[in-house]
Design a binder for these strands. Sequence first.
DNA 1: CAGTATCCCTCAAGATACTG
DNA 2: CAGTATCTTGAGGGATACTG
Lengths: 148, 148
Amino acid sequence: MAGHKSMNDESCPVARSVDIVGDRWSLLIVRDAFDGMSRFGDFQRSLGMARNILSDRLHRLVEAGILETRAASDGSAYQEYVLTAKGESLFTVVLALRQWGEAHLFARGERHSQLIDKRTGKPIPLMAPKASDGRGLQHANTEVRKVS
Amino acid sequence: MAGHKSMNDESCPVARSVDIVGDRWSLLIVRDAFDGMSRFGDFQRSLGMARNILSDRLHRLVEAGILETRAASDGSAYQEYVLTAKGESLFTVVLALRQWGEAHLFARGERHSQLIDKRTGKPIPLMAPKASDGRGLQHANTEVRKVS
DNA sequence: CAGTATCCCTCAAGATACTG
DNA sequence: CAGTATCTTGAGGGATACTG
């Protein structure tokens, strides 16, 4: 995001994704949206960020097709920001970040919020890349096929 | 990253992860490292970024335990930057971003680089969150359990 | 080649005041 | 309450020169 400057390798999906959600706030807004938040004030209080930046990020996320606005369900004149299908498919990204953080950024015994399965009340298992035959995939067994 | 300012919710693993790799370059450096790069000049040419910024990011990634330095394998006086186990476990994050980008950020028919399974030559299947019983998991079936 | 140091500029981000 | 507008600051980032 941010830099409209031509990102280095435009054919790389990682680079494009980072260009859109690779800043300090966007994915946290999306996380809060997954958590049920939809109002400006909710995000603002949750994230403690400046209102103008929040306004800017919400607009960018809408423009990127990750959020969309709706009339508030309570009849007030304002808007709600809800995830589109495209935004919901960021669930995997947010989960990957969450699980990496859980595994590597907390001291043993240090408590952290946790994502749980509503049906079972149990934590979500660690997500892992799989090959097409269903076997676990190490990064060493993969490579990037460049494109002209 | 960047802002050493107390991130909003320190108990959220997503927030901590974003604080470390949530900038425009870090994950691209990690991506290149997965792609086999290890030298300063490799990263610099690949990413086209300013050398001082690259220097800063490499140091931060080392400090974060994501990369570590080694004496160059070719006997030159310089260093190589290689992924630690902690860094390698970012594979899931990078893959999630890659797959989201592939699915949503390219026009139909637009070509992009692709991650393939070396053994089969086939693309990596879409990674999906699973519940503990192995069933697919919708975000609507999850919730965050807060922690004091 | 692998960095470090310096200069500069833009923009992200914060704070705050203002408006419907 | 939901934003927008304005001002300021500081970090992120680029360009380039310098050094071992």
